[in-house]
C-alpha cells in the first residue's frame, strides 16, 4: 500500500443500468484509521457503490482507486490488494465449520490455521470454531462473517449492513469492534441503516439519495443537514 494516498478514493463515479442512473458523479475517500459510513434510503445506490469498488459493476465514468492504484477488476486481485468485504446476506458456507469458513479466504492468500484461530479468538468465536456455521444463532453468524473478512488482515474493510438484525447489546459490541479496527489503522467503509450505530462509529458520513451525494461530513454535520432530514432521517430521527 502507498502511504501517501487514501486507502480508497472514489472519484466522479457514475453507474447506469440501461436508462436508470444508479450512481451519479459520486466522490469521496477513506483514509487510514478512518471509518466512513454510507447511508441513504433503500435504492439510493449504496450497494451499487460497494459493487463498483469490488469490480462487480463497472462505472461508466469516474475511477475507483485503492491506495493510489486503479482498483483490481477481479475479486482475487482485490483481496491481494488488502481489501475485504462482508455481505449483506452473510454468505456463510453453512455446512462448513466456523473455522473452515474463516480459512477459505486464507486458502487463496496464504496463511495458516493459527491466524484463523487468533481471529476467531478476537471475536469470541473460539468455542464454536468446530460447529457448522449454519447452526449458530444470527448474532454469532454475523461475527463469523466479520471474522472471515478480517482474517486476511485487510487494510480496507467494506462492511455491508453490519448491524442489521442485531440487538442492542450486540450492536454495542460491534461498535467497539469497529472502533478497534479503525484504531489499528484500517480504513472502514460501511453501509448501514441503523442511524444510532452510524453516528456512534463513523468519523465521516456520506449520504446518498437517488445515486447522488446529498451530504457529507462528520456525524454532527450530517445530522443537522436539512436535506438529509428530508431525504432519509426524518423529523426527530436519531
Amino acid at each position: 500500500m502507498n502511504e501517501s494516498f487514501p486507502l480508497l478514493e472514489i472519484d466522479g463515479v457514475t453507474v447506469a443500468f440501461g436508462g436508470l442512473t444508479a450512481l451519479e458523479d459520486v466522490s469521496f475517500a477513506v483514509r487510514e484509521g478512518e471509518t466512513v459510513a454510507l447511508i441513504g434510503p433503500n435504492g439510493a445506490g449504496k450497494t451499487t457503490l460497494f459493487n463498483a469498488v469490488c469490480g462487480l459493476v463497472r462505472p461508466g465514468r469516474g475511477t475507483v482507486r485503492i491506495a493510489g492504484a486503479p482498483a483490481p477488476s477481479s475479486a482475487t486481485g482485490l483481496v491481494r490488494a488488502g481489501v475485504s468485504r462482508t455481505l449483506q446476506g452473510l454468505g456463510l458456507f453453512d455446512t462448513m465449520t466456523v473455522l473452515e469458513n474463516v480459512l477459505v479466504p486464507l486458502s487463496t492468500t496464504g496463511g495458516d490455521t493459527a491466524r484463523a484461530a487468533a481471529t476467531l479468538a478476537r471475536l469470541g468465536l473460539t468455542d464454536v470454531a468446530g460447529r457448522a456455521a449454519g447452526t449458530l444463532p444470527y448474532p454469532e453468524r454475523k461475527r463469523v462473517a466479520l471474522a472471515r473478512a478480517l482474517v486476511t488482515e485487510p487494510r480496507l474493510l467494506l462492511l455491508d449492513e453490519p448491524a442489521g438484525g442485531l440487538g442492542a447489546d450486540d450492536i454495542d459490541a460491534l461498535a467497539t469492534t469497529v472502533g478497534d479496527l479503525a484504531g489499528d489503522g484500517r480504513g472502514v467503509l460501511l453501509v448501514e441503516h441503523h442511524v444510532d450505530f452510524v453516528m456512534k462509529v463513523a468519523d465521516r458520513v456520506v449520504v446518498l439519495d437517488f445515486g447522488r451525494v446529498i451530504a457529507a461530513g462528520t456525524p454532527d454535520e450530517v445530522r443537522g443537514d436539512p436535506a438529509v432530514e428530508a431525504a432519509y432521517l426524518g423529523v426527530g430521527a436519531a
Binding site: 475479486a75 482475487t76 491481494r80 468485504r85 454468505g91 458456507f93 477459505v104 479466504p105 487463496t108 492468500t109
Partner: peptide
C-alpha cells in the same frame, strides 16, 4: 457450495 461468495473471497 456458493460460487459467487467464494469468488468474492478470492477463490478462482
Amino acid at each position: 457450495f456458493a460460487p459467487e461468495t467464494a469468488r468474492l473471497l478470492g477463490v478462482r
